[in-house]
């Protein structure tokens, strides 16, 4: 720096007080909702988990958790997979498209923090995931299933799943050049994680090593939590021989899975922060 001073003409005392990160996130969440409803492709991510319910409902049903059957278990397991479709698919698709259309850059140059922009899309993913999860629970109850044993844990499993999958979807935008390639790109981890989620194919039928690996990935722990929270059984050690447990027993069993999810969320958030690309012009 030469003679030019770096002192601002209107210094720090001139800073403006903005609406705050929380309000900005909520406001962007509202717009995300509007855009989601108007964007036809988004409905595909809503339909995918519903379509996957069909084979679940048609499979041979045998009792596995006391009186509860494999069908009921798989139905509730689907709750863990909703975030996989919506969270991974929708943000990856629309954020790639918006980056290419300079929409994201426009928001940033207007002074909107990255966290609020990411938070907005997370909110819409969470909203629609909770909505479909509520429909599945309602369907399950209508088919003679119980009311959720621990609704808080059920909600937590949905929220953790949405957060991790949204982060993963956002991270994948780095490798997509346009909305179409983003859709295809997101399908690869989507199908792999779906296969290893335990939602459709119980992890019990897989080799133990595969099961252990699956439980370290960011979907299977949420499926397990959803099933445990709904039926009140300690399924964390496998379905075989799982017993009904009380509130504390359920949460104690869920802790390793919650830990795995939190590690994924922090790691993915750091990766998104470091590698997310706002600008379509790449170095």
């Amino acid at each position: 720096m030469t003679t030019a001073t770096t002192t601002a003409p209107q210094g720090a005392d001139h800073r403006r007080k903005g609406p705050g990160l929380f309000r900005q996130t909520l406001r962007l969440g509202r717009t995300e909702f509007t855009l989601f409803v108007r964007y036809k492709t988004a409905s595909m991510y809503l339909l995918m988990p519903v379509i996957l319910l069909l084979p679940v409902l048609n499979q041979q049903s045998v009792p596995i958790l006391g009186e509860y059957t494999t069908t009921e278990l798989s139905l509730i397991g689907t709750i863990g997979a909703i975030a996989l479709f919506l969270g991974l698919g929708h943000p990856c698709n629309v954020f790639t498209a918006r980056r290419e259309a300079l929409v994201l850059k426009r928001l940033r140059v207007s002074g909107v923090p990255a966290t609020a922009i990411f938070g907005g899309v997370f909110l819409v993913v969470l909203l629609f995931t909770v909505l479909i999860a509520a429909l599945i629970v309602a369907g399950s109850v209508a088919l003679g299933g119980p009311l959720p044993a621990d609704p808080v844990m059920l909600l937590l499993s949905v929220a953790l799943g949405c957060l991790a999958m949204t982060m993963l979807g956002l991270l994948l935008t780095r490798f997509a050049g346009n909305a179409e390639s983003a859709q295809i790109l997101s399908m690869v981890p989507m199908m792999a994680l779906l296969f290893l989620s335990g939602g459709f194919i119980p992890l019990d039928v897989m080799p133990d090593a595969v099961r252990q690996v699956a439980l370290l990935l960011p979907v299977a722990p949420t499926v397990e939590m959803a099933q445990a929270a709904y039926f009140g059984y300690d399924v964390f050690g496998g379905l075989e021989g799982a017993e009904p447990v009380g509130f504390l027993g359920l949460w104690a069993g869920a802790l390793p899975g919650i830990g795995v999810m939190l590690v994924w969320i922090v790691a993915l958030a750091l990766l998104v922060r470091r590698y997310f690309v706002w600008d379509p012009r790449r170095p």
């Binding site: 209107q10 903005g18 918006r98 259309a101 300079l102 929409v103 994201l104 426009r106 002074g111």
Partner: peptide, 21 residues
Amino acid sequence: QPTGVRERTNAVLQGNGLMED
């Protein structure tokens, strides 16, 4: 875009950056 800069600057980009919907 640190606080103290982002609230006080803005831009018209080479493309529009508008949400078309």
